[in-house]
Design a protein around this nucleic acid. Structure first.
Length: 211
DNA sequence: ATGAGGGGACGCGCGCTTAG
DNA sequence: CTAAGCGCGCGTCCCCTCAT
């Protein structure tokens, strides 16, 4: 029974990750017979999951889009991304979005494992939204997490910073806040050498190990 | 014709409940 | 405490339907 619901979750997770799966593949992965897979797919459908099936050569199962959104299984990275996105949306004051974001966030945080709650907390509490930005720049989410965690823990940070001109300098800072524009992340921090507040573009930061 | 999902019927094994 | 009874999940068998 407990075994069954666990298998149902695994099946759902398989369907959410991939392409389409043949019944035989799913049976193989789940360690049951195809007949049992069919029964499990039935159960998922009863629970409201839109599982599409294609017959004939090259057929298989696929998770489709339904009229209602069933619960999702997110991996750690996805859960953090969604939670942070919701927090940002909630804080942006966009009409109609803010309140829904808070509601969704409440649901998500209710089921969020503790280890993720900490990460979301770090990113959420130490970022502040700022309006308007221009071009896109890509920042490693791992770096953002690291910067946010440093803000949260008031942890001194050393990194190499690439300037607009292209030359690189080493900085030692006391991080204060991560600031998000529409497209860009900035770290606001106290620069110990220059004895002043500085704003660093996150995509120009390369962390160096402390010594 | 072939290969895929869909599903009914049946039996087996396991765990739980209940009568003795 | 034990054995019978029961429900349930699963595998097996078999046939159906549909797409290629």
């Amino acid at each position: 029974m407990l075994e069954t619901s666990a298998r149902l979750l695994r099946l759902l997770s398989l369907l959410q990750t991939h392409r389409d799966w043949s019944g035989a593949d799913l049976a193989d992965r789940l360690g049951v017979t195809p007949r049992t897979v069919r029964r499990d797919v039935d159960k998922l459908r009863e629970l409201g999951y839109p599982v599409n099936a294609a017959r004939g050569t090259g057929g298989g199962y696929q998770l489709g889009a339904g009229a209602e959104l069933p619960p999702l299984l997110l991996d750690d990275e996805e859960a953090v991304a969604v939670a942070v996105g919701l927090r940002t949306a909630a804080g942006h004051g966009i009409e109609g979005i803010g309140e829904s974001s808070v509601r969704a966030l409440a649901k998500l945080e209710q089921v969020l494992p503790n280890r993720l709650r900490r990460r979301v907390g770090a990113l959420g509490a130490f970022t502040v939204p700022m309006l308007h930005g221009q071009d896109a720049s890509v920042v490693d989410p791992g770096l953002l997490t690291e910067l946010a965690a440093a803000c949260r823990d008031a942890e001194r940070l050393r990194f190499a910073y690439r300037t607009h001109g292209g030359d690189s300098s080493r900085r030692t800072v006391e991080p204060h806040r991560l600031v998000c524009t529409e497209r860009r992340w900035y770290l606001v921090a106290w620069d110990l050498e220059r004895e002043d507040w500085r704003t660093f573009r996150a995509d120009r930061i390369t962390p160096t190990p402390p010594h």
